[in-house]
């Protein structure tokens, strides 16, 4: 098992590499100095206090929440229908249609952004948060579909048939059997889409017009050295929020699998 030990050392080193930048966030968020550099000068919470009174940032936060929630709901609705279609029904052109819907996963985001900006400008629709939502739904739907497909796949078809056989209508079957069993998948899809939307920069940057989302706001702050400690403390709050959302999503995904009677594969449902 010597090979195993070397691999373990390597893997732990790799984890340090992955985490190094992220771990700096909380460290410098509480550092007294106005420059983000070593040595640390002292403990402070003043950057967080500054955030508390940064009204532009608050607006950006609200914008992001609006975009994130709208995106999460829309892409989960699309994702639920599409995942159901692809797991339950067989029809001509299904593969092609699904492939097309999943395309944004492998398309550079700049292409999506450029394409949307061109068409919106041509159609005379002004750039706005709504435009950002349109773009985000496009890139989040594939993730929703992936998560919900796994939820629907784990759902035994005979459960729904049993419900029909026991006298329920297709409509009531959906609410008594299907929905309770895929609900955790739906929650997980909502959380993941929301998180992706909250972090997305390039599409928002192209489409947002005058109302910045949080990443666009952060981008505008990065140019000023004096603003960096503030950005770092904001970043650590976002990190915390993302973590909570991600863990919640994972929790619900596992519950979905457990409910449907299968064990989670532990690879994250979005693979």
């Amino acid at each position: 098992m010597r090979q195993g030990r070397w691999l373990k050392v390597y893997s732990l080193t790799y984890l340090v590499f992955i985490y190094a930048p992220v771990l700096l966030l909380p460290i410098f968020a509480f550092n007294d100095s106005a420059i983000v550099a070593f040595p640390l000068t002292g403990f402070t919470t003043k950057w967080f206090e500054e955030l508390w009174s940064a009204t532009v940032m608050h607006e950006a936060l609200w914008n992001s929440l609006y975009v994130g929630i709208a995106t999460a709901v829309l892409s989960t609705v699309f994702g639920t229908c599409a995942a159901r279609a692809s797991t339950r029904f067989d029809f001509r052109g299904k593969k092609a249609a699904m492939g097309f819907i999943m395309l944004p996963l492998v398309l550079p985001e700049i292409i999506v952004a450029v394409a949307l900006v061109v068409v919106l400008v041509q159609m005379g629709i002004s750039l706005s948060l709504f435009a950002v939502v349109l773009g985000h739904v496009l890139i989040c739907t594939p993730f929703s579909i992936a998560i919900l497909s796994s939820a629907f796949n784990n759902l035994d078809l005979s459960l729904e048939e049993a419900s029909l056989d026991l006298g329920e209508t297709p409509f009531s079957t959906f609410f008594r059997v299907t929905l309770p069993l895929v609900a955790p998948g739906i929650v997980s899809s909502l959380l993941i889409s929301f998180t992706i939307s909250l972090d997305e920069f390039i599409i928002a940057f192209f489409l947002t017009g005058t109302d910045p989302t949080l990443p666009v706001y952060i981008w505008s702050q990065l140019r000023f050295t004096a603003k960096l400690p503030g950005v770092v403390s904001l970043g650590s709050l976002l990190l915390l929020a993302s973590l909570i959302l991600l863990l919640a999503a994972e929790y619900f995904r596992r519950r979905a699998n457990k409910k449907a009677g299968t064990e989670g594969d532990g690879t994250g449902g979005f693979l």
Binding site: C81, A85, F89, I101, G135, V137
Partner: peptide, 26 residues
Amino acid sequence: EEASGFKLLSPAFLYALVMLAAPLAM
């Protein structure tokens, strides 16, 4: 069954058509 599949897939598909295929064509 085919129609049920189409009906369920169409929202996401039409969305991708309008928001991705059309813009790319543009």
